[in-house]
Design a protein around this nucleic acid. Structure first.
Lengths: 351, 351
DNA sequence: TTGAAAGCGATACCAA
DNA sequence: TTGGTATCGCTTTCAA
């Protein structure tokens, strides 16, 4: 069943003449014609310039700048099955911890000629599955996810896509592919130990209604109990977190009876709000109330020298995630598929 | 010069059997075969379901879910010259004012089936032109820019791309295509009038080394001079802004001799830092020092009730920019190509 | 309502 | 080092 095609284009351009739309862009073919070479040579001049003779290269480059040629990566990606694009799904870009991580992630990928397509999963009205499907239809070469809990449909889609996947902001012994993150359980345990070791007997928490935040809190409270610390006060706040909610949270803890002690907040944003409330009330931090945040937002520590926090090295997490993905995309071997970037409890204001 | 092609694929699948890579994804053709229809019918079932008979539609949908088909938008975009994607270039996504604007912009576009590809222009080591070129090679259906100042090369690229362009965060009578923003000049003037009207005689500024921030400050100081307010103190800080820089900025203003008065900051982030410094020093705001920010970040006002600010309705700017772009993409007529979303000076803590 | 054929603009593969 | 030809997976155009 061989079919026959005849090509109507007999050389020469054939502009339709009408108002020029997006489609009228210069093509490889036009550049090639102008340079007096074949299209594939122009393609090589762009992608593997060392495989093209110097003189040819020059002719081609001249033709490119004369025409103002901008490659069409849709066509290129279709033909080569490489889009030089990776996708990333984060809960919210208006949340500094994710935005900063993405900044480092993108920066690294940009250096290698990749672009990042960002998706936000934080909208309950849009299923994560439909987001993922929309993203996969652009055929990214790899994808970054936030967290390690995904619906069965999402897992199916990801597996079907047959591209490298890196999960972040958490750990699991059974990643879809790669995971670059840290253990929320260990954070809960270590923060509890930290608190107990300093002799605090009264502990408050201000936690966002976020899965991982809730988990850290739960683990911490359980461990505290084992340490014999039982006077605890909990405030839960709806996402998105902001400083006001941190202020209000602290006010509520005080009103409920937390006099002096320590407060563990699920983000630095909340912690800064709590600290602001202390400042406004003239409470000494950490002497009267100690505040522990989470995330170590770059500005938080500097702004509030008394703010202790659980430091997550987000720049590193972003870069490591990018590197891991790049390695997988290039088919390079990886030492580890589970990468723990760890965390660090930073105590401030003790002097 | 008609050429002949023979198609080696004689029906039936021909998996290469090796380790399956991204390219092995299910195609329209496989879905069509399974459903017993032609590829174009499957395509219609997805894009114009009302033009397909109910029974056929059902068969197709069954085949789609059986195979786990995910459309290839590279191929679709190449064929139709519509990518259902728009690009946006912002200085930094780790800056809440831009991130929030983008959130609303994306949300709106998502509702219409478009995705947003984000680019960051804030890296001096990468020319804006190369960023733009990389973005345009993905053939977005439209593009959002931040600001109205673009290099000649960028203008050329944008014009050559022949797609709708919306400039934001500023105004100009001669936009590339569309502009949705507000006047920094008018802000400078009105803030100066506001300050003069309240009788402040001593004025400090804390401004980021950002083109638009500098312009607002310059206009404001000139106008203040005309009002006879000449005792001014200026602090300039390098981007990116953070609260610490705001704290330090205020400390420096005080040290330089600004006793009581008002301080105009180029962003709410800086203003919050300045306010924190006041809190820490026990200075009453606004009685001793009044603070005026810029941007009206959602959390800022609530966290610091004494913080006055220049409100920019970012949600609206994002939505309006999206709507304008959508209209242009669909070829719908637009009432205005220059849209001023305005601003509002919010005075707080006066009671 | 459905389909056949011809591209869209690039790259892969194999020759020259 | 350069080029011819056949795709990549989809949509458009025109017919049936």
């Amino acid at each position: 069943m061989a079919r026959t095609r005849n090509h109507p284009r007999e050389g020469g351009t054939r502009r339709r003449g009408g108002s020029s739309r997006a489609g009228d862009a210069v093509t490889l073919e036009e550049v090639a014609r102008l340079a007096g070479v074949s299209t594939i040579t122009v393609s090589r001049a762009l992608n593997q310039p060392d495989k093209v003779a110097a003189g040819t290269l020059e002719k081609v480059n001249r033709a490119i700048s004369q025409t103002g040629y901008v490659p069409n990566l849709l066509a290129g990606g279709l033909a080569s099955k490489k889009t030089r694009m990776v996708a990333a799904i984060v809960p919210s870009i208006a949340n500094l911890v994710y935005a900063e991580t993405m900044q480092y992630f993108s920066k690294r990928l940009n250096e290698f000629g990749y672009q990042v397509m960002l998706g936000e999963s934080g909208y309950p009205e849009r299923s994560e599955q439909s987001l993922l499907s929309a993203i996969l239809s652009r055929r990214p070469d790899g994808i970054l996810l936030t967290g390690v809990n995904h619906s069965p449909e999402c897992r199916r889609l990801l597996i079907g896509a047959r591209i490298p996947v890196v999960e972040t902001w958490d750990l699991t012994p059974t990643p879809l592919d790669l995971v670059v993150g840290f253990s929320h359980e260990r954070i809960g345990l270590e923060v509890a130990d930290f608190i107990a070791a300093r002799g605090y007997r009264r502990v408050g928490t201000i936690s966002a209604s976020d899965r991982r935040a809730q988990y850290r809190e739960k683990i911490m409270l359980e461990r505290l109990q084992r340490h014999g610390v039982t006077e605890t006060y909990r405030v839960q706040i709806p996402v998105p977190s902001d400083m006001r909610k941190g202020r209000d949270g602290l006010a509520e803890l005080l009103q409920r009876g937390l006099g002096t002690g320590v407060v563990f907040c699920s983000s630095d944003t909340l912690a800064q709000g709590a600290l602001t409330e202390c400042l406004a009330r003239g409470l000494k931090v950490p002497e009267q109330i100690a505040i522990i945040g989470f995330g170590d937002q770059s500005f938080a520590a500097d702004t509030f020298p008394a703010l202790s926090t659980v430091r997550i090295d987000r720049p590193r997490m972003g870069r490591v995630a990018a590197d891991a993905l790049l390695a997988r995309i290039d088919g390079r071997p990886l030492e580890e598929h589970v990468i723990d970037v760890g965390f660090q409890i930073i105590e401030r204001g003790t002097t």
